[in-house]
Design a protein around this nucleic acid. Structure first.
Lengths: 150, 150
DNA sequence: AAAATTATAGTCAGAAAAGGTCAAAAGGTA
DNA sequence: TACCTTTTGACCTTTTCTGACTATAATTTT
């Protein structure tokens, strides 16, 4: 497993441990913990904790600076509609996973179903298409499944 | 025996040795092991480990990249095997339905799964694509899901 | 209060570490 | 010979990691 993956997993676990799903850390502490340069942490944050991946990140520089990572709460009431509304006409594979996780969290779908949707919308299944077409098709498939199956 | 065949056999043995029949290797390691160019490995994968042959292959580029080869056990089933033999790289919506009915008939898949496949491969879900792209993508989604649910 | 210092975090470009593609050359076979 | 399969290599793309330099906030000094 890559360093990014290790750090990503660590942060996710820590976030889950926290009340309100808000974690506050010092970038330099993380860097030290994983023996890497501080900018590696920025790399992890930007590739794995972007808003479209279901996280809000706030930071502050200077003395007492921090990185605050918050899991975006899924709205319990009518999560399906909420997700549907948030979907634009393009979706990356990662974003699909974020929503599937949320749907699983709230027991809207089962693990097997999530797996099937994941495969249906995977880059692998859409491999003959360009990146743009992949993302558009993914969003379309996902929406249709939500409307017709869930 | 050709190099392709040697590598094919090696991979098959290794996959069998693995738990869950999932093998993860580095392309460069394989290439080194068999003293060949890395792209030879791609040749082996694409000619011997295609979905039609009962394998599911995922890869990842970049640092820490890999090739993951998964054997689909149920592929030994005659029904599945037969269907895969017949599917080309394009499928119309009608053909998808025919095969779904067959798979349902033989209890290879469940009703819910069939429904998701039907929606995912519908013209509606693929509406942004040309007819040709629709049919290719449909076949790809169909194969990938079947390989992952049976 | 202003200036200097210290403590953080951010940015960006380039190196490194993979895997992918495609076409040409080589080898076999009907 | 004509065709199909295999092998090779040059070039491409993606992902990760590193480090030099920049920006901002708090604290200390003058």
């Amino acid at each position: 497993m890559n360093l990014v993956d290790v750090i990503e997993q660590y942060i996710k676990e820590e976030v889950n441990k926290c009340d309100n799903d808000i974690l506050e850390v010092k970038r330099s502490d993380l860097a030290e913990l994983f023996s890497c340069v501080p900018s590696q942490i920025n790399y992890v944050i930007s590739t794995r904790f972007a808003p479209e991946m279901g996280f809000y990140v706030e930071t502050r520089r200077g003395g007492g600076g921090y990185i605050r990572i918050k899991k975006i709460p899924a709205y319990e009431d009518d999560i399906v509609n909420n997700i549907f509304d948030k979907i634009g006409n393009k979706m990356s594979q990662r974003v699909v996973n974020v929503y599937l996780d949320a749907l699983l969290d709230y027991n809207v779908i089962e693990k097997d179903t999530a797996k099937i949707i994941k495969v249906a919308t995977s880059d692998k299944s859409l491999q003959n298409l360009s990146q743009e077409e992949k993302d558009i098709t993914r969003a379309s498939i996902f929406k249709n499944i939500i409307l017709n199956v869930i």
